[in-house]
């Protein structure tokens, strides 16, 4: 069944394609791809099934990729401005070992180790702040303030202190993830209701029992929120810190060097690596969150 409004839209689309064909057949081709993808998606989206929720964004992504490829090929866009997706894919395949060493250098050594250290440190300070209310009232505003500042700017200082290798990147990551995790953990630990805390007191629970059995579990959604924000920040910190000096490997190093050589297919391949690493990192934390906070309303039903 096609409604009247869809029919009108179809007429407009056909008209646009025809008009474009008169001006430039290539333009008509591009428009055709776009409308085709959009029409397919409109059809699937109407079904409203669970499969549609994954199919629609995937089809949209594929449409954009085909469009990108078509634009580059039809209009002969030079590779130093925008390489085609196929060129990026072949650069990715051809340089897989290099990309892997870059991944290990930036993501595993720099981002991951810094992430662990920063989160543990933030968590420890948050526990201290939870124990001493005076500290909490002082740290929370300061932490909130710091979390909004451009902390990436500390990169040149930390590179100067810790050298060019991954240690300095890890240090930047520590500083970057510290405040979001701290603020979220402190806010989470304060989140339990007075009634619940009173209940713990009637049970004669000690401070530590109250912390472990009540306040830590109820803080988990907040803590994971901070941990998830920190995943992206960790990668940003590790990559940007490499712009200030690094050994001859690493995602940020390769991006800045390849940009200088105008090897944009390599730059895009590194961006793919960074994107995959970022989504995987986030996905892992989100997965753990679902396992840990299975009781939370947002994870039920």
């Amino acid at each position: 069944m096609i409604g009247a409004s869809e029919r009108r839209l179809l007429v407009v689309e056909v008209g646009l394609v025809a008009l474009a064909a008169l001006l430039d057949p290539r333009l008509a081709m591009i428009l055709l791809i776009w409308f085709a993808g959009w029409t397919v998606n409109t059809g699937i989206a109407r079904s409203g099934t669970r499969a549609a929720a994954t199919a629609v964004p995937v089809i949209f992504g594929i449409t954009v990729l085909i469009l990108w490829e078509a634009v580059v090929r039809l209009f002969d866009v030079p590779g130093v401005i925008l390489p085609a997706p196929t060129a990026i894919a072949s650069a990715f395949a051809a340089n897989a070992p290099t990309l892997w060493t870059d991944f290990v250098q930036t993501v595993v050594k720099g981002a991951l180790s810094g992430y662990l250290m920063g989160c543990i440190a933030a968590f420890a300070v948050a526990l201290l702040a939870d124990r001493f209310d005076f500290l909490r009232r002082g740290l929370l505003p300061v932490g909130n303030f710091m979390a909004a500042l451009p902390i990436v700017g500390t990169a040149p200082i930390l590179v100067m202190w810790f050298g060019f290798d991954w240690q300095s990147k890890a240090a930047v990551v520590v500083v970057m993830v510290f405040f979001p995790v701290l603020v979220n953990t402190v806010a989470g630990l304060a989140d339990s209701q007075a009634m619940q805390r009173d209940l713990m007191r009637t049970f004669g629970a000690s401070y530590w029992q109250g912390l472990v059995k009540l306040r830590l579990p109820s803080a988990m959604p907040f803590i994971f929120n901070g941990l998830k924000i920190a995943t992206t920040l960790a990668l940003v910190g590790a990559i940007v810190a490499e712009f200030f000096g690094s050994p001859v490997q690493g995602v940020g190093f390769r991006i800045s060097v390849s940009v200088g050589q105008l090897a944009l297919d390599m730059v895009w391949a590194e961006i793919v690596v960074a994107a995959l690493a970022g989504s995987a990192f986030y996905g892992i934390i989100a997965f753990v969150e679902r396992r840990v906070t299975f009781w939370h309303p947002s994870n039920r039903g």
């Binding site: 992206t232 940003v236 991006i255 590194e270 960074a274 994107a275 989504s279």
Partner: peptide, 8 residues
């Protein structure tokens, strides 16, 4: 939001 888009 999960990707370090600043890399580009």
């Amino acid at each position: 939001q999960t990707v370090p888009i600043i890399a580009i």
